[in-house]
Structures are given as structure tokens and as C-alpha cells.
Write a protein that binds this DNA or RNA. Structure first.
Lengths: 250, 250
DNA sequence: CGCTGAGTTGAAGTATTTCAAAAGCTGTGG
DNA sequence: CCACAGCTTTTGAAATACTTCAACTCAGCG
């Protein structure tokens, strides 16, 4: 087992996201199926390219993946992140072409389940089918929230929302206390996620620090000092958001 | 039968989208099931509100629906449109809360299938299951394309992309000739879709008309004079896009 | 110790919004 | 048939949020 390596990101910081197995609620046979197809990946690895043919569903076991699209001129938009426990089916309408590129943001591992196996599994195991459905709902809700802010929100709102989303997805207690977490992204990547230049991401986050909303230490180690303030900037109800974007645990 | 009324939108213009039944490829038993749950709606009707509880999957039979989200300050983002043949499952991660509001943009009809029935149907009828899967892929691809442009594209690119998307989804021949179609939207709504003010939508479309890309007659009756030019502005490969966002027909 | 990549900050430029006013259409009632 | 109200579109001018460019700092790393 390489768990010891994979449970820690490359900066040597333990990540809450991988510290506990998010698939723990699934039955052993499902977890076994995942483990049988498990395959490690490394920070920066390209798993799949936009428009490539794809014949599997990807189940993230450890680490972060980004799903992105690019324009010819080299501009990139990150559509979503896939975290441990997430299931990614990148296929477009034709069932084969991938609508996004998938890249690794950290070391980790995933199970690539060929469509045929996946269909058999979901047909046979209702728990997996339900699980997939909940994850799709979470995906949809997250992307819709982000689209709303991408289209109508200010830079401040977009950054605040993104941070809250990370906070919730990472399972850090976000309702009270002063949640603290690390995200394996540069400001450039965060900008690609919320449609801002890295410069403006920087300015916006600095302002939040000055205003006592956040504290930031080396490379995206974030401590939320004023959760209510952050939620207000993001224009979200934290409780409701949590229910909508976090798949219910057993 | 009220077909005669519903096959024509309120401006009296026949709409390509409803002129032919998009579910024709489905077997009769599926179409029957839809028809048994069919229920008409009227232009402007609110089918469901964001955060409401929802217990059904919606299958659009005729007409256009918008899926949207709003900020407290009243700003609205249209996440997607649902056209005849589309299936909408608005549930978020909890399986109950709707992540979007659903409103009617025209008269039409839909089948609201309770989750229990829906699950039974998809489990029993593989063709329906496959159909749903293709539609989800199309949804995902469309939304990703739009997110990319929402985050990184200019106003011109967003408008051009939206028009091409409509063109393709409406089944108008978009590869050659001079496709012509009607979209049941105000410039304000189009702006809410692509993250622009109505004023800027107007300016951008006017410029396209001046440049000989489009022709526009009363209220969003659009004729594409220069399809290649439009595709270039949108930064898309029309053939590829079509395969990705249009569910394959039998 | 110098290199590299990421973050930070200022200044200038630009795309888009907002505000405001007018014009065009559509339906309604006199 | 006209007048009027209400809504969408159009256009101009001013305001602004964000980007781009450029220079500098800082930390990690060979």
C-alpha cells in the first residue's frame, strides 16, 4: 500500500479530503470493485483531453482532479473539481467524446471503470445507483451556483463562494469555529475556476484578509475568521448550500 | 387535442422545435407513459421554484422552459433551457431540493414523472435509460461550453455561441444554407443566459447585423447569413459541437 | 547563490454596466 | 380609428469593474 504517501499532499500537509475514506458508506463489494480498478496518478498528470474518446467512468479515490475546457487562444476555464469520492463521467451527448479535460492537481489515485462494467454495477447494486444519483445532484447544484455567480456576481462574490464551496466539500466544519483548510491551487487556477485574472484574485483575497474575513499562509492555506462575513459576501445560506452540494452521508 | 394551439407559439409563428415530435425515436410504451402524465402549461407559468421540494422528473413534450437561479438583489442567471424531448431532474444532492427555478417561456406541455415511477421506468426500459444518459451528456457538454465562455469569452463570443447552440438544438440545418429560426426570448432573457446586460446584448447583435453575419426581424426572428463567420466569433467547430450537444437520433 | 515560479502592487487601458431618453410595437378601450 | 399604457429595443454618455502590463518581492530548490 502506498497510502502513507497518498494521504499527504506534496507540501507535506495532511489534507482533510483524503484523511478519511469518503466511500466508507458504500458496501465492501463496491469498494472492492473500485480498488480492483485503482490506478495511481501524479500531480500534473493529464488523465484525459477534451474531445478525446473516453470509455470509462472515473471514481476518484484520493487526490484532486480538475475538469477544464480551453479556448484556442489558450484561455482555460475550470468547470469543476473532482475530489475523493466523486464520480466523473465526462461523456458528451454521443456517449464517447469527452466534454472536458481531466488533470491531476495532486498525487492520488482513481478507479477507471469501463462503461460496460459500470452499467452492470449500477444495475446490480442499487446503493451505487443511488450514490451516483446523489453525486450528480451535487454536481448540478454546484455548477449552477457557480454559473449564477459567473454571470451575475462580482469578483468578491465569486471568490467568497468558491472558498465556501471548498470549505463545505472538504468536510471542514464550516458552520462555527474558524475552519482551516488547504486547497492545492495557485491563484491562477483559482482564477480559471471563477473567471478572473490571477491578479484580481490576489487583490480580492488580500482585501478579504485586510477586512479580517480570512487569514492566509503559504500557498493557499486558508483560515476563515469570519464565516458569516464570508457567507454574506458569497450571498449564500451556508446551511442550505451544504445540503445541496454535499452528498448526504449514510 | 389542443395540438393545433400548442404547435404554434404566441406570435403565431410555427416553431421548428415543436413541429416534429423529438421523442419519436422512443418506443410507443414510453411515449404512452409520457402522455399519461402530460399536463399543459402556459407562457410565464412558474413550474417550480429554486429550493422548493421536488418529487418528479420533468419531460418536456412541447414548448420551452428556462432553468434559472437568482441572487437576492433580483439578478437572474438562466442556467439552461429545456426544449421538447429534454428531461429535467432539478434535484440537488439531497435528492429533494430543487437547485433551479423552472419557468415556461412559451405555452407547451410536460410530463411530470414521480421519482418512483421514473426509477421503475428507467430500470425496466433500457432504451429510456440510454436516452436519459445521452441527454445528461448533452446537458453537461452544453453547460460546460457556456461556462467556458461565461468565464473567458467576450460578449461577442457569448452571443455567437448562444445563437449557434439554439440553431443546433432547434434542429435547423446549421451547416450550410442560411438557417432561420425564432427564439422565444427577450434580449433581457438572452442576457440573463449569457451573463450580459440587455443593453450590451442589443449592441452586440446590432453589430453582427451590421457586419452581415445575421439578419433579425421582429422579436428574435433570426436568420444566419454567415454561418462560418458566426462559428468563428463563437470559437466553435460546428460539426463537433453538434455531436456533443445534440443527443444522437435513432 | 542564483534561478524559477508564485504572489503582490501600481498604473494604464478596456470591455461592459448603468443611467437616461427616445423610438417602435402591441394590445386596450374609448 | 385614435390615444394611451406598457414593454422591448435602440442609442448615447458617464461610470466602473476588471484586465493587462510591468516591476518587484519572496520562498523553495538545485
Amino acid at each position: 500500500m502506498y497510502s502513507d504517501v497518498l494521504f499527504v499532499d506534496k507540501n507535506g500537509k495532511p489534507s482533510r479530503a483524503v484523511a478519511s475514506d469518503p466511500n466508507l458508506e458504500l458496501s465492501e463489494r463496491v469498494r472492492n470493485a473500485f480498488n480492483q480498478h485503482a490506478r495511481p496518478f501524479h500531480d500534473g498528470a493529464v488523465i484525459l483531453l477534451e474531445n478525446d474518446e473516453c470509455h470509462s467512468v472515473f471514481c476518484v479515490l484520493e487526490g484532486w482532479l480538475s475538469l477544464s475546457k480551453s479556448l484556442d487562444e489558450g484561455q482555460t476555464q475550470i468547470i469543476d473539481f473532482a475530489l475523493p469520492g466523486d464520480i466523473v463521467d465526462p461523456a458528451a451527448a454521443d456517449g464517447i467524446t469527452s466534454s472536458v479535460s481531466i488533470e491531476a492537481l495532486t498525487d492520488g489515485s482513481l478507479a477507471a471503470m469501463p462503461y460496460a462494467s459500470w452499467e452492470r454495477m449500477t444495475a446490480e447494486w442499487p446503493e451505487l445507483h443511488r450514490h451516483e444519483h446523489r453525486l450528480k445532484g451535487a454536481d448540478q447544484a454546484r455548477r449552477a451556483e457557480r454559473m449564477l455567480r459567473l454571470g451575475k456576481g462580482t469578483a468578491e462574490m465569486r471568490v467568497a463562494y468558491a472558498l465556501l464551496e471548498f470549505c463545505i466539500r472538504l468536510g471542514t466544519v464550516c458552520d462555527g469555529g474558524t475552519p482551516e483548510f488547504h486547497i492545492p491551487l495557485t491563484q491562477q487556477q483559482l482564477g480559471d475556476f471563477i473567471g478572473l485574472s490571477s491578479v484580481h484574485v490576489c487583490r480580492t483575497m488580500r482585501r478579504m484578509v485586510r477586512n479580517g474575513i480570512l487569514e492566509m499562509t503559504d500557498h493557499m492555506n486558508i483560515k476563515v475568521l469570519d464565516g458569516d462575513g464570508l457567507a454574506q459576501l458569497a450571498a449564500v445560506d451556508r446551511r442550505a448550500l451544504k445540503g445541496e452540494i454535499l452528498p448526504a452521508r449514510a
